[in-house]
Simulated scan of single mutants.
Amino acid sequence: MSNFTTTVTAFLLLGFSDTRELQILYSLLLLLIYSAGLMGNLLIVIITTFDRRLHTPMYFFLRNLSIVDACFISITIPQASVNSLVNNRAISVPGCAAQIFLLIFRAYVEITLLTVMARDHSVAICQPLLYPVIMSPRVCMQMTLTCLFTGLLYAGFHTGYTFQLSFCQSNVIHQFFCDIPSLLKISCSETFRHTLSLLGSVLVIGVGCFTFITASYISIFSSVLRFPVKEDQRKAFSTCVPHIVVVSLFLFSISYVYLKPPSDSGSIKDIIFSIFYSIIPPFLNPIIYSLRNKQIKEALRIVIKRQLFFFKGLNHKL
Rank of each mutant, 00 (worst) to 15 (best):
T76V: 12
N88I: 07
F16Q: 02
R20E: 05
I218A: 08
R20D: 00
C140L: 07
F273G: 01
I279T: 03
A70L: 12
S92N: 04
T112H: 14
K230P: 12
P262L: 14
L43N: 15
C168I: 10
S84H: 00
C126E: 03
C209M: 14
A80Q: 02
Q23L: 08
L130K: 01
S267H: 07
F273H: 00
F250S: 08
Y161R: 10
F72I: 11
S166D: 10
G208A: 06
F310M: 08
V224A: 02
D270S: 04
L65G: 00
Q233M: 13
K235N: 03
V86D: 01
I180N: 07
R301M: 04
R234P: 03
L165W: 09
L85W: 02
M117C: 14
V246R: 05
F192V: 15
T112R: 13
L130D: 00
A236F: 02
C96D: 10
N64Q: 05
M1S: 15
F4W: 15
Q295E: 14
C209P: 04
L251V: 13
C240I: 08
L12T: 10
I67W: 04
I275A: 00
L103I: 09
L145Q: 04
Q164N: 13
F167T: 10
L29T: 04
Q307R: 11
F4S: 11
D264F: 14
M117H: 13
T112I: 12
K235I: 12
A98C: 15
N285E: 07
Q175P: 07
S122D: 00
I73G: 03
C209F: 09
L249R: 07
F283W: 10
G200C: 06
N3R: 11
S81L: 03
G151I: 02
V246D: 11
E231M: 12
N83C: 00
I24K: 05
F309T: 11
M135R: 05
H194G: 00
D232G: 08
R306H: 02
F149K: 08
G208V: 12
T239Y: 01
R119T: 13
F157T: 12
Y34D: 13
A36N: 07
V45L: 06
I47Q: 02
M1E: 00
P132T: 07
P261E: 03
I180L: 12
L62I: 01
R292A: 13
L153N: 04
T19V: 15
T239K: 14
R63C: 04
I173T: 01
L12M: 10
F177L: 06
G266R: 09
V68I: 06
R106Y: 06
D51S: 03
F163A: 03
L152E: 05
M39I: 11
L130A: 02
T115E: 15
H55Y: 05
I272H: 10
V207G: 08
L29G: 07
